[in-house]
Simulated scan of single mutants.
Amino acid sequence: MLNMLSALIGLVTLILMIPAVFPLLGALNWLLVPMALLGAFVGMFSARNGGRNFCLIVAGFGALRLFLGGGIL
């Protein structure tokens, strides 16, 4: 159950990251990366690790976007 919740948090975060790819909306990732890490934290308590890994990939994508945009763009 926690694996599905973690995957759902990751999916919602990934969908919300789509507008954050556009210029001047990248600061939205400051809210979405911790949200994905929260999903990974929830996934830690599951017997399976698919949702946790998905959330970590989503968080990594958001962190990469923040790095490329200088933390703001």
Score class of each variant (00 low, 15 high):
Met1Arg: 04
Met1Tyr: 10
Met1Pro: 02
Met1Ser: 11
Leu2Arg: 15
Leu2Tyr: 07
Met4Ile: 11
Met4Val: 10
Ser6Tyr: 06
Ser6Lys: 07
Leu8Pro: 00
Ile9Arg: 03
Ile9Gln: 02
Ile9His: 00
Gly10Arg: 02
Leu11Ser: 15
Val12Glu: 01
Val12Leu: 15
Leu14Trp: 07
Leu14Val: 10
Leu14Met: 12
Ile15Thr: 06
Ile15Lys: 02
Leu16Tyr: 09
Leu16Ile: 04
Leu16Cys: 03
Leu16Arg: 00
Ile18Met: 00
Pro19Leu: 00
Ala20Asn: 12
Ala20Cys: 13
Val21Asn: 01
Phe22Ile: 10
Leu24Asp: 12
Gly26Thr: 11
Gly26Asp: 07
Ala27Lys: 02
Leu28Ser: 13
Leu28Cys: 07
Asn29Val: 11
Asn29Asp: 13
Leu31Arg: 08
Leu32Phe: 04
Pro34Glu: 04
Met35Tyr: 05
Ala36Lys: 11
Ala36Gly: 08
Ala36Arg: 10
Leu37Gln: 08
Leu38Glu: 00
Leu38Ser: 02
Ala40Trp: 03
Phe41Ser: 14
Phe41Met: 13
Gly43Val: 11
Gly43His: 07
Gly43Trp: 01
Ser46Thr: 03
Ser46Ala: 15
Ala47Val: 09
Gly51Phe: 10
Gly51Val: 11
Gly51Thr: 07
Arg52Ser: 04
Arg52Ala: 09
Leu56Trp: 06
Leu56Val: 13
Leu56Phe: 09
Ile57Asn: 06
Ile57Trp: 12
Ala59Gly: 03
Gly60Ser: 14
Gly60Val: 03
Phe61Ile: 15
Gly62Ile: 09
Gly62Glu: 08
Ala63Pro: 04
Leu64Arg: 01
Leu64Glu: 01
Leu64Gly: 04
Arg65Ser: 13
Leu66Met: 14
Phe67Glu: 00
Phe67His: 08
Leu68Met: 15
Leu68Trp: 01
Leu68Val: 10
Leu68Pro: 00
Leu68Tyr: 05
Gly71Asn: 09
Gly71Thr: 06
Gly71Met: 09
Gly71Leu: 12
Gly71Ser: 08
Ile72Asn: 06
Ile72Trp: 14
Leu73Glu: 07
Leu73Val: 12
